[in-house]
Amino acid sequence: MSPQTFDRETWLDLTVNIVPLGIMAFFFAAFIVVQPWGFDSVLSAVQFSLIGVPLVLLAIVTYYTGRAIFNAEHAE
């Protein structure tokens, strides 16, 4: 997903989803730094996938919709 994939306009539209992605990334990082309940291989794995999976899925869906709309606009 290089910056050239979309034009400036589209990037601006996409910010709306980049904010929640950012919030999740923040918590992901924060939970790596601060672990008040310690580390447990299973539970911590679940903990991070609970944030990581939605993060990745949302990034993917946003990317593909962005593409579909961008292409539709530029096909005209």
């Binding site: 919030i23 999740m24 918590f27 992901f28 939970f31 309940w37 539970l43 679940v46 609970l50 944030i51």
Partner: peptide, 9 residues
Amino acid sequence: RLRASFMAV
């Protein structure tokens, strides 16, 4: 730990 993740999302 799980609770914290659900809160984040």
